[in-house]
Design a protein around this nucleic acid. Structure first.
Lengths: 151, 151
DNA sequence: TATTGTTATACTCTATAACTATA
DNA sequence: TATAGTTATAGAGTATAACAATA
């Protein structure tokens, strides 16, 4: 019975929720929500996919993508291009403005990361990252996984 | 530029959301939701408080407590006792059944903790706990904090 | 007049089902 | 008939405002 006073899993959930909340605030300054950033990241990493394909990767019903893409398209961040071979499908891509905004998101994420781990030394930061990666692998979480809330 | 490929803060949010989701599943087997467990934990640790006092500690509007307490009271887990000195106030306490159920919740939490950190050695587990505690302190998170979702 | 608890209402987010157009 | 995208609808969760009882 040498268990820590407060469970690690509980701490993990608490600190993780805090990190997510702070990141939500940061991208809010760019007028973006976590679901929007999640979609933009996916389109940026693999352009030209259909909405159905994106919905599967996000683990969300396809109907949710419609208003999500609508909003980003109206702001000129994303483009719906028709697929010439199968005219039912769209091919989603980032616009020039979209790519520029994703650059800002990346800078916000890097700054966010430094803020959250500010109290750790460089070695501790590397150790934390290694331990979290170990758990993520063990629990079957993939790097870009957007399921379960957050960007 | 020796930053890790995927930011620690992002990993933290991802693994934390996963841990929270898995815990939600576990308490779901006891027919409980995270807000319910959060309230029960608070009443268990400090019995006799008013709904307003509890609402403040949970960081939620007092109106939310009404249906929350209603459900737990109907199931015989919690009791609304009138305060004789000031009859506007309730004094919330756990029933015998409520205490028994909290025992089950505690066992579920311990088991959950072992599952999430199963891939780590005993030393690694202690290290992770220490690093997370360090971040939590630095970010102003209190041990029992129930803000930002989860139990 | 101020405070506790309650009710009523509205708003946000998300999921389900029905529709269209293409294949 | 099957599939991509859309629209309409409904449900859960949460917050705001108005109300009754007590101080």
């Amino acid at each position: 019975m040498e268990a820590p006073p407060s469970g690690s899993a509980f701490l993990l959930a608490q600190v993780g929720a805090h990190a997510a909340m702070r990141f939500t605030e940061r991208i809010g300054a760019l007028d973006l929500t976590p679901p929007q950033v999640g979609l933009l990241r996916l389109v940026a990493s693999r352009p030209g996919q259909s909405q159905q394909a994106l919905a599967k990767q996000l683990g969300t019903p396809a109907t949710r993508l419609v208003p999500l893409v609508d909003g980003l398209e109206k702001r000129g961040l994303i483009e719906r291009r028709r697929n010439a071979e199968d005219r039912r499908l769209y091919a989603l891509e980032l616009s020039e403005d979209g790519r520029a905004l994703m650059g800002q998101v990346a800078r916000a994420a890097a700054s966010h990361d430094r803020t959250i781990t500010a109290v750790l030394t460089e070695d501790e930061r590397a150790t934390l990252h290694a331990l979290l990666t170990k758990i993520a692998d063990d629990q079957g979480l993939t790097p870009g996984d957007a399921r379960g809330r957050l960007s």
